[in-house]
Design a protein around this nucleic acid. Sequence first.
DNA 1: AAACAAATCAACCGCCAACAT
DNA 2: GATGTTGGCGGTTGATTTGTT
Length: 352
Amino acid sequence: MGRAPCCDKANVKKGPWSPEEDAKLKSYIEQHGTGGNWIALPQKIGLKRCGKSCRLRWLNYLRPNIKHGGFSEEEDNIICSLYISIGSRWSIIAAQLPGRTDNDIKNYWNTRLKKKLLGKQRKDQHARKSTSQKQEILRKGMRENINHMVSSSSSDYNSNQSPYWPELPVLPPVPYSNEEPRFNDHASIRKLLIKLGGRFSDDDDQPTNGTMNTNLQYPLVSTNSLVQVQPLYDQQINMLSSAPLDVLNTTSSLPETLYTIDAADLSTLQGQNSFQAGLEQMICNNPQRLDGLEFLCGDILVNHRTGNTCGGSSDWGDMNSLVLPAVASGYEGLQQGTLQECAIDQLRYLGP
DNA sequence: AAACAAATCAACCGCCAACAT
DNA sequence: GATGTTGGCGGTTGATTTGTT
């Protein structure tokens, strides 16, 4: 049996909202709230709209303090960084940017930022070939940008929040409606982290004195101190500038695997001189954990799977050379397939 | 000025998880 | 536990706007 429609499609208006509809919806919600039921709401106020449509309209446009357009450089950086870190979790990314909606950010990413980054990426590749010095300058610049973001975002956006990076998620900026979800308690945060893919040890249900349980096994970005985390910034930047073009071009989110890197892995990574070396070590320890990450560490993984020595000299700087003909022939095709398929293609190409 | 292409963005669709019955 | 309902999310579409020839 199929899913029941949320509304009577035949009797529901579609398309752009009129000012009258907006006014009706806005004034009702401001006076009465949503009543906890979006589906019933349009009937209550005499709107021939689907409840979902009302919700979307309210959240994306009618809600107070919504900003449209005019993304700042800083917001760009935040979006890029978070996308690299967590993928297309637009709602989570939006939670870091007060006044921005997931839809807005998603559109902005798809229409502008992705291209902007892609352009940068291409420039980076060119620069890397011409001179490694220039690359260092570029990275330094990006590091500075990120450092600046970290230091200024708290004052510009959420003066009472944790830095947006790398602790994810941070508290969302003052939701307007008290019906909206808040993450200001341990349980909510825990729930959100679980949803994100973070894992908790069995005894995590113990009271935690109002602080996050340290047994939380959350991604690469689980440490609290910026000082500790700084190398990871560099690593992310390295990954960004040296990963195949496909990384930035795909609309898929980054592999879930990113979220299952636990504390042991983290220490492995941090114990190495470089992220690359750490990742190699991690792959040696537990290769299946990297399934789905092939596009980021293709040569290492391939080396491992083909029996080559782990810890050998994988040239991350030249990872682009591993974008094999079948894959490199055009990233249009790539977009249609999954990253896993891409990786499988690469493996097939290399053979056993 | 007209025609066309590209970019933008509001809105829809369908899936999934959580919750209620 | 099974089934139905709702909210939320990410991906996609298509109308509109903007830029180019």
